[in-house]
Write a protein that binds this DNA or RNA. Structure first.
Lengths: 231, 231
DNA sequence: AGGCTAATGTCAGCCGCTGACAATTGACAA
DNA sequence: TTGTCAATTGTCAGCGGCTGACATTAGCCT
């Protein structure tokens, strides 16, 4: 008899999981080496030795596979936000949620693909027009969810009070910007994006002041690797 | 002999212009009646009685034709911003630019397509995932341009001082939000979106205050047609 | 072992899009 | 006017993403 302990379920289930993982990895590997556009679905399928049709049974589109990991990461942020203590102000809570999420997200990614592969994929997303477009749409879908979450925390009605949506919109705008800058920079590490995030979020308040000429110059933003990453 | 006065240039040029206009209108008409996805490029070409290949010689993609008018509108905003007096603070200048642009944009649109057709197209864009994605990407491309413009106004270096990009990001976030809400609402008029814009921009400052519970409740946001549109 | 069902492969076909080449049609000069 | 040149268009073939339909394979369960 077989003493195999089904690590999660039946053989069928495990096989499916392995196929999905293999497709995901092969896709990201090809995307990051040849580029997204220059990679055909047939290539991905061939690399895993399944038919093209099978690829589309696991991922609804070529785009979807590119965002599989990203989707997980976003889930982490939402979870982190949900766990912020109620006394924190909206922007404070969002800020803390991102920063704390960046600290624990490495583990979660590693279970699916090498972290370094994910980082490279993110850069591909940011630099491929078609993917960037989808990325942005996904982002605003998340914005809506977060706005509702914030409204709930504050005991407000998202549709009656504009402040939750406005705050989240402003916050997400900054987040996107850091993502972009990070993608363009050279330091493709989790620490780098975390530091970048922290530094730019600190400017959200000051940037909205009416008069920029009166005050003293703000701290210079970190261009790329900010030596020791902010503690 | 023919006394035809070439309204703009040679016959060839006029013919090209007419074909382009016809394709544009036919496309938007079909998009707004059947939906974007359910409209094929062949249908558009057939409606104008040209080959599919010809369509692609005028528009690089099916998406591009959907954004033709939008592109013009964006140009207007940038022009308006360029003309704002230098003493206005960044957010003030952007705010005034949008509002003044909305006032003159009607004319410009009318020269190409019926305004009402443009408005319906905007709603199609906002409600079609594929188009929404592209719309967002185009938006952030414009953000980058505006950030540089603002930085120039203020005599700053976009890459050294984070405030221009941050302010523009926050501003654009709010703008996108109003566009979305407008698309969902029922009043598909230029006045409606102008009023919506004005109302929400007024909340940009207050929304970023740290404590939302201390202060008194803010004015209720206009859900849709806000009666008389703000002067 | 054998039946059941889920997963996969195969095939045909639509749609967006492109390159190549031929046919058409303005533009312009002789 | 006519003929030449160049721009515009049509036609055709083909690639890549994606889907429905149907046959085939392979895990599951009695």
């Amino acid at each position: 008899m077989t003493v195999e302990q089904p690590s999660s379920a039946g053989l069928r289930e495990r096989k499916k999981q392995r196929t999905r993982d293999a497709l995901l990895r092969a896709a990201l590997e090809l995307f990051t080496t040849q580029g997204y556009e220059r990679t055909t679905v047939d290539e991905i399928a061939d690399a895993v030795d399944v038919s093209q049709r099978t690829f589309f049974r696991y991922f609804a589109s070529k785009e979807e596979v590119a965002f599989a990991v990203q989707q997980m990461v976003e889930g982490h942020f939402v979870d982190a936000l949900r766990q912020r203590p109620g006394h924190e102000a909206p922007l404070e809570a969002m800020r803390n949620a991102v920063l704390s999420a960046w600290d624990t997200i490495g583990e979660a990614i590693r279970e699916v693909v090498p972290v370094e592969l994910y980082l490279r994929t993110f850069q591909v997303i940011e630099s491929t027009p078609a993917l960037l477009a989808v990325h942005l749409r996904r982002s605003i879908e998340m914005e809506e969810n977060i706005a509702r979450l914030i409204a709930e925390r504050e005991g407000l009605d998202v549709d009656a009070d504009p402040r939750p949506r406005v705050a989240v919109a402003a916050f997400s705008g900054v987040m996107r910007m850091t993502g972009q800058l990070w993608g363009r920079g050279e330091d493709a590490s989790l620490e780098a994006i975390r530091a970048l995030t922290e530094a730019y979020l600190d400017h959200l308040g000051p940037a909205l002041a009416t008069d920029w000429r009166g005050g003293e110059a703000p701290a210079r933003a970190p261009r790329r690797t900010p030596g020791a990453h902010a503690e």
